[in-house]
């Protein structure tokens, strides 16, 4: 099977890419001044040089850089992400706790952005040049230009503080102790504002992209053929134009998921969402390099896997593209 061969080759590539990312991350983070020992000593208020030396010895920070690097490399290759001395927990355990909420937030935001943005873009292209198009385009521009953190704060002010419809932050109502469906409903309510905040920017992008992509396909010869065949306008839009217009959307989706993860940091901080983004943010300030490297390593795997999935989606959308080389 060509597809299986492609996937196998894909996984080999992924291994190299991820390893490369891990190595770059390692050296990049060493460029930042200060280390965990300094931060901890600083928080303690006063610390003797002996105490700092002891901390460094304990964390392995007193070793020469190349020794640290090779031990890190060995750990990565054995999928051992190390230990967070700051949090007093294995990195893998910390990440396992936080990855779920982040994926939930990302999935909901992207899902929202693609479905609503795609629909709006579709409608704008169907009514290009008319009032509906103008309104949608202006809205998209507005969402595109508004800073994410401002949207987040404003949504909280309106829907949580003033109207009291939705919770201010967090993922669950801690004191309620919901289970089952009630728990899911509780999480869903907490999810609304962060999803909107993170999703509106991407919604704007997908609206514009879908509109432009549809209009481009509308100009192609086979659409004229469909018209000459007497196919009704709605069917031309859905059957002939939409499917061909989806390819650029999928491409952009693959490229953007990395940046969605970056955006998640901001949104998770604003809404105290217990996700990876906030964990990475804290780890960065605490110079908790083991944890930070672990998070970066895991996110790179997620992004690369998603891009592999995009390749597969391509083949479903466009019969001209086949996995495993030339058709």
């Amino acid at each position: 099977m060509a597809a299986l061969a492609h996937l196998r080759r894909g996984f080999v590539q992924i291994a190299f890419v991820v390893l490369g990312i891990a190595i770059i991350n390692f050296f990049l983070l060493r460029l930042a001044p200060g280390d965990a020992a300094q931060v901890m000593a600083g928080e303690a208020g006063s610390a003797t040089p002996e105490y700092m030396a002891a901390l460094r010895r304990q964390f392995g920070l007193d070793q020469p850089l190349h020794v640290q690097f090779f031990s890190y490399l060995k750990n990565v290759l054995t999928l051992n992400l190390g230990y967070s001395f700051r949090q007093g927990l294995p990195v893998s355990e910390l990440i396992a706790h936080r990855v779920g909420p982040t994926l939930l937030l990302m999935g909901a935001s992207i899902g929202f952005a693609i479905t609503v943005g795609g629909t709006l873009g579709f409608l704008a292209a169907r009514h290009a040049g008319k009032a509906a198009d103008t309104i949608i385009s202006i809205l998209a521009l507005l969402f595109y230009a508004t800073p994410v953190f401002w949207v987040g704060v404003m949504l909280v002010v309106v829907f949580s503080v003033a109207l009291d419809w939705l919770p201010v932050g967090g993922m669950i109502t801690i004191e309620a102790g919901h289970t089952g469906l009630a728990y899911a409903w509780d999480v869903a309510q907490h999810l609304v504002l962060p999803t909107l905040t993170l999703g509106l920017f991407y919604l704007a992008i997908y609206t514009r992209l879908m509109r432009a992509s549809m209009l481009e396909v509308y100009g192609q010869d086979f659409v004229r053929t469909a018209r000459a065949k007497g196919v009704r306008a709605h069917r031309i839009a859905v059957r002939h134009v939409l499917r061909n217009a989806l390819l650029p959307i999928v491409t952009t989706l693959g490229v953007q998921l990395g940046s969605v993860l970056g955006g998640a940091i901001l949104v998770e901080t604003v809404f105290s969402w217990p996700g990876l983004g906030r964990l990475a943010f804290e780890a960065l300030f605490q110079r908790d390099l083991n944890l930070l490297l672990g998070i970066l390593f895991c996110s790179s795997i997620v992004v690369v896997l998603i891009n592999l999935a995009v390749d597969v989606i391509y083949t479903l959308l466009d019969p001209r593209i086949s996995l495993g080389g030339t058709p």
Partner: peptide, 24 residues
């Protein structure tokens, strides 16, 4: 007009390479 097109009057185009929808 749409009811007439393709049914009573039909057209063949110059560019067969692009006249067909690639995904159908």
């Amino acid at each position: 007009l749409r009811e007439v097109r393709g049914a009573r009057i039909a057209m063949i185009f110059q560019e067969p390479m692009t006249a067909l929808n690639p995904v159908l």
